[in-house]
Design a protein around this nucleic acid. Structure first.
Lengths: 331, 331
DNA sequence: CTGTTAGCGCTTTCAA
DNA sequence: TTGAAAGCGCTAACAG
């Protein structure tokens, strides 16, 4: 049986309080007592139980990271990894521990219910879509909550980009270079309005919305494989785009692969534009033209906001920059 | 004030026990009572407190992930991300939550001391080097521990590869193709013996160890930037390798960059070999010849072992496959 | 500087 | 099927 604070107190001839002080605020006890207590603690291999401490303090020192998909899927997207890096960075600075919230059993709800955390940052799960019951539970436990790439509606603090503007810039870049037969590879529904942005740009030239006219809108998971398959199908269907806009960089990877396999040259035969600017985008050949957004900053800002919320502050939602960076894949 | 189990018990006219049963083993109480309790719980927005539950049960349902470096650094290496994916995958399956162990204050020790977890998987921190005091603390808290890419000595369960064999295969591939002026980019000290493997292969041909003779051994952080800088310095020093062996794929990225900048053609002018086979390795042009090891499997096996340990079993250390995959960067 | 004493909120054995 | 009561191990007023 592991030694408890009582054992130490007894053996050192002091009270629990004194032992507690020795570990938490040594200044409040005499140097003598401190040493005696610590000696005994060492002898008995004593160490305060973290859980008991948390219960008594009413604070876990941990924040939960709520993912919209299984972590093994999320982490396949380098942009998500960047977000995680940002969150982790701030958490360490704030002395907070990061806990991945998932559960095989009751799904998200159960995970939230049992999470021993002081607050939650939910990534890509806002809106009625992802969090659904989750938001309920979070509300019920009334834990501080910050969303990343979520819906900025309601009172929830959200950190994201102006996807609509970014989407418009992306499409405009393609249109300005004369592209009209455009394939759009989307991944799920982005709460930041990227698709609406594409529509805006098209509308400004009196062109029909994505999927209509000379454009095609295809949905695929945000993985290279899924995107490649979807793109391949599209080509096989006879559609010949002069440009393909990927709403996620990893999808662009799939497009690159398929083009290589079919002997299609980028950007000579077909232009490709991505979204995110994952670290690897610049290593592709040709280097990928893409909408740059900093996942790290997104994560960092979200974690900071959550820390503020936990500390009793009232942080605001933040909208980060997202701009097209021209490289070589768009001609 | 949030409602507690007592409030529910009182309002529902039952005992704490019954309320607890309602939430944990509904079968033990009558359907009637169950519904009454739940109704009251809903009205009052009650939800069992996870921390109190953990304290009473003496089990957290969480495993700690002990990183050797700050998470924002670790996650820059796709191989580490793969390991994390593997761990996360198994954790979810096992109904375990994953907690990143770090702390701004007392460093690793403090993090371990306060971690409310049932066990720990330490990645790349085994041996006297990384864990140092950490191992001590872990031992003292006597938490189940599994290391990844650690030293397989002592009783600790470790999951890794036969780095020595892999290193030998890597070097042999270069030597077999006639390379003699070889640059080796290492990253920290690998506990798996990669460098010893390189030495083995050289020795088999009666060649001097890495760093001596026609070879150069350079250490750099496992990032593209650090590797690029180190490689650049090496070239500027006048050394003209015909092949460069990177003990980590991300370093190969840096070499690719530098070669591109200097107009050096891979593999015509210089051959490059990596280690890890990160997901992007195949997207490089030329595709990277590298030693393939599955980070996902490593993480998964480690997590499984830890789960077994927590469950009272005695899992064994595991040595995973690592084999060279020939692509186009080695000529 | 040190001790007394309530909690913290829930689980779980044992008995009814 | 339900309840009483004894913890789980520690913290933090408050009092001295």
């Amino acid at each position: 049986m592991r030694a408890t604070i009582m054992d130490i107190a007894a053996k050192a001839g002091v009270s629990k309080t004194t032992v507690s002080f020795a570990f938490n605020c040594p200044d409040r006890i005499s140097r003598d007592t401190y040493e005696r207590v610590m000696r005994v603690a060492n002898e008995l291999g004593y160490m305060p139980d973290p859980v008991a401490r948390i219960l008594a303090r009413r604070r876990t020192g941990a924040v939960g990271l709520l993912l919209s998909r299984p972590i093994e899927d999320c982490l396949r997207d380098p942009h998500a990894v960047e977000i995680l890096r940002g969150i982790g960075s701030v958490c360490r600075r704030e002395g907070l521990t990061l806990e991945i919230l998932e559960s095989a059993r009751g799904g998200m709800d159960d995970a939230i219910r049992n999470a021993a955390v002081d607050g939650i940052v939910a990534i890509g799960v806002a809106g009625a879509s992802g969090v659904s019951g989750g938001a309920d539970i979070i509300g019920r436990r009334d834990l501080p909550l910050v969303t990343v790439d979520g819906d900025a509606r309601e009172g929830t603090v959200n950190v994201g980009i102006d996807g609509r503007r970014a989407g418009a810039e992306m499409m405009e870049a393609a249109l300005a270079r004369g592209h009209r037969a455009i394939a759009i590879l989307s991944a799920g529904d982005f709460a930041d309005g990227r698709v609406a942005g594409l529509t805006d740009a098209l509308a400004r030239r009196a062109l029909p919305p994505p999927g209509a006219g000379e454009t095609r809108l295809v949905a695929a998971d945000a993985t290279a494989e899924a995107a490649r398959a979807a793109f391949s199908d599209l080509l096989s269907s006879g559609f010949r785009p002069s440009a393909v806009l990927c709403l996620s960089d990893v999808q662009a990877l799939g497009v690159y692969e398929e083009c290589a396999a079919r002997g299609i040259s980028i950007p000579a035969d077909i232009s490709v534009v991505g979204f995110d600017d994952i670290p690897f985008a610049q290593f592709l050949s040709p280097a990928l033209t893409t909408v740059r957004q900093s996942g790290f900053d997104k994560g960092a800002r979200a974690a900071s906001a959550l820390a503020a919320l936990i500390a009793g502050g009232s942080p605001e939602s933040v909208v980060l920059e997202a701009r097209l960076v021209m490289r070589s894949s768009l001609a």
